[in-house]
Design a protein around this nucleic acid. Structure first.
Lengths: 252, 252
DNA sequence: CTCAATTTGTTCGTATGTATG
DNA sequence: ACATACATACGAACAAATTGA
């Protein structure tokens, strides 16, 4: 039996994943969890062969992958060592209040996308508010510098949009909205869920198809409980980070 | 070019997934998202070929996978139809304050996992607190009923753990901690990031490898700023939902 | 210094999986 | 379905570097 049914995963898809990728993902996780720290010598090829029940060459393939990622370095005769901790630096801290949501997006560059079939009206959930008579629908890629970091699909109540169509085309809608006089915002909430990139999202954000993404849905209503803004932003998952203070009784 | 570098994603690992698995996961998501409902005819092979830029056989392989899962059924000359819904109703609303974090997890069932190589100490970030002298490391699958919904890796300061080892083995550590007398909690924060399931996570949570996941890291410190609890919970991404009130000036 | 044990590096042949056109 | 090309995986043998007795 060369590559048979030795390991039968519960999910058909799982068992089809190449062995060396499976091994690599376990090793990566051990580094991330701190089981092997930077400078540590990891288990020998022989040990890993035994543990995962794979051939030597397969273990080497996995290790090679992590060497390319810069996490490991092998030395003939000595062993394989951890060279880099597994940390993500370029976090996009997702806001949990209005001010810190607006502040960082002010200078974002916005690249409008052609709108194919625009939905007539946004899909509104229970208790999110009442629909305005009509909406303008915009799609855009939001960029920081030249890096795309979010794909936006935005509905703006037409009446609001009409007040400053040019600004809405050049700046993130939320920033424009926040600066607008005479638009009393009664309620704004955001909900975050997790999904996977479809073909179009993948292309715009330059990530792999079915790579993890974060979907942020933001709904803003005015004093009459009419939804004046509704956006769905898709971020590459590996960039999103959200901090939540649960308790803070410390002296500062 | 047979299987070359046509698509260079930001995530090396994802793009190395066999194409037919990538295609399958996109189709699966469309069913889950309700883009194709039960009874609907999905896009033709020709359309899918074009969309994903793969050969016909590759699309067929993806569809075959979903036929085995019972989601699709192909009929020669008619098309391929959705036969089973894949709706997600079981949202897990992630807590944004201490009380609502503790409340729902009280009755969770906990299935301890064997700890192979435990990290000597938890990896602590800048400003998260000081390390206790030693920690107990636990791994578990948290369940609601028989459904696994999170994979937990928990460090508890040994001194704290020693006070109620049996309770820590049977209940979620945070719940035990919250009920403990004489443990003054000065600071608790949680951070959420998004990742993809590795082999082990996929197995424990019964999801596909590299399916989106949410990683919640929770750090609890005592009055002397010593980290007494640190956990990393991995949730299936499609279950996590987080609501954030940005502004609320409504009358209730 | 030498020797043996340990550990990674390299190569071969073979079989099966993935993907194209 | 077929021919083709490349990727994955096995097992085994041997080479080269390092370490410590």
């Amino acid at each position: 039996m060369v590559n048979g049914t030795r390991k039968v995963g519960r999910q058909a898809a799982s068992s089809r994943l190449p062995r060396y990728l499976q091994v690599a993902s376990v090793l990566r996780r051990r580094i991330q969890d701190g089981i092997w720290l930077v400078g540590d010598k990891i288990a020998t090829l022989e040990q890993l062969e035994g543990e995962f029940d794979v051939a030597r060459v397969t273990v080497r393939q996995a290790i090679e992958l992590l060497q390319v990622e810069g996490l490991l370095k092998s030395h003939q005769g000595r062993g394989t060592f951890v060279t880099k901790p597994l940390k993500n630096e370029r976090w996009l801290h997702l806001a949990t209040d209005w001010a810190s949501l607006i502040a960082p997006i002010r200078e974002n560059v916005l690249e409008l996308l052609p709108v194919g079939d625009a939905p007539a009206a946004p899909l509104i959930g229970e208790g999110e508010g009442k629909l305005a008579p009509s909406y303008t629908y915009l799609r855009s890629v939001q960029k920081r510098g030249s890096e795309p970091y979010a794909l936006a699909r935005v509905h703006i109540a037409r009446e609001i949009y009409a007040r400053a169509p040019k600004r809405f085309a050049a700046h993130p809608a939320l920033a424009v909205l926040a600066e607008m006089k005479g638009v009393p915002i009664a309620h704004a909430h955001q909900s975050l869920s997790i999904s996977a990139a479809d073909v179009e999202t993948a292309r715009h954000l330059d990530i792999a198809i079915s790579a993890p993404t974060a979907e942020a849905r933001c709904v803003v209503t005015d004093a009459r409980d009419v939804v004046i803004y509704l956006s769905e932003l898709t971020y590459p998952g590996d960039v999103v980070r959200l901090n939540i203070e649960l308790i803070d009784r410390r002296r500062r």
